[in-house]
Simulated assay, not measured.
Amino acid sequence: MNWLNGWLWIVLSLVLAVLELFAPGWVFMGLAAAVGLMGILLLTGLWSAGLPMTLVATALLSGLAWYLLRRVAGVKKGQVRIWDRDIND
């Protein structure tokens, strides 16, 4: 039954990656990468813990993936503007 669960996680990962196309800013990409990795781990049999532990591991992997994606392809110079004076002055 783990192989079926693995495929469901991979399909969910693809759905999240498609949602990322409609929501800019790396909103779903870290979660999609973590869910995809967890699906691969379930398919190969390297992960056999229960659902609560799987969800915790996925949350931690999601944070790590999001952080790494932001570091690699993050904010470009000039993308964020810091205002140093009030527009009404």
Rank of each mutant, 00 (worst) to 15 (best):
N2W: 14
N2L: 09
N2A: 11
L4M: 04
N5T: 10
N5C: 00
N5K: 08
G6D: 01
G6N: 05
W7V: 12
W7A: 10
W7F: 13
L8T: 10
W9V: 04
W9G: 04
L12F: 15
S13V: 08
S13F: 10
S13Q: 09
L14T: 10
V15M: 10
V15D: 02
L16F: 15
L16G: 13
L16S: 13
L16I: 07
A17M: 02
A17Q: 03
A17Y: 07
L19W: 14
L19I: 01
E20L: 01
L21A: 07
F22L: 03
A23L: 03
A23M: 02
G25N: 01
W26Y: 15
W26I: 12
W26E: 02
V27E: 02
V27H: 09
F28A: 14
M29P: 04
M29Q: 05
G30Y: 04
A33P: 01
A33M: 07
A34E: 00
A34R: 08
A34V: 02
G36Y: 05
G36R: 03
L37A: 15
M38I: 03
M38S: 12
M38A: 11
M38W: 11
G39S: 08
I40A: 14
I40L: 15
I40C: 12
L41H: 05
L42Y: 06
L43K: 11
L43S: 13
T44Y: 05
G45A: 03
L46A: 13
L46Y: 12
W47C: 04
S48T: 15
G50W: 05
G50F: 05
G50K: 10
G50S: 09
G50Q: 06
L51A: 10
L51G: 03
P52E: 00
T54N: 07
L55K: 13
L55T: 11
V56D: 03
A57W: 06
T58Y: 04
A59Y: 11
A59L: 09
L61W: 07
L61V: 00
S62R: 06
S62V: 01
S62M: 05
S62D: 00
G63M: 03
G63C: 03
G63N: 02
G63H: 04
A65D: 00
A65S: 14
Y67C: 05
L69K: 09
L69A: 11
V72G: 02
A73S: 06
A73K: 12
A73P: 01
G74Y: 14
K76S: 06
K76T: 09
K77A: 13
K77R: 14
G78C: 07
G78F: 12
Q79L: 02
V80N: 06
R81M: 00
R81V: 08
I82V: 15
I82S: 04
W83P: 06
D84R: 11
R85W: 08
R85N: 08
R85D: 08
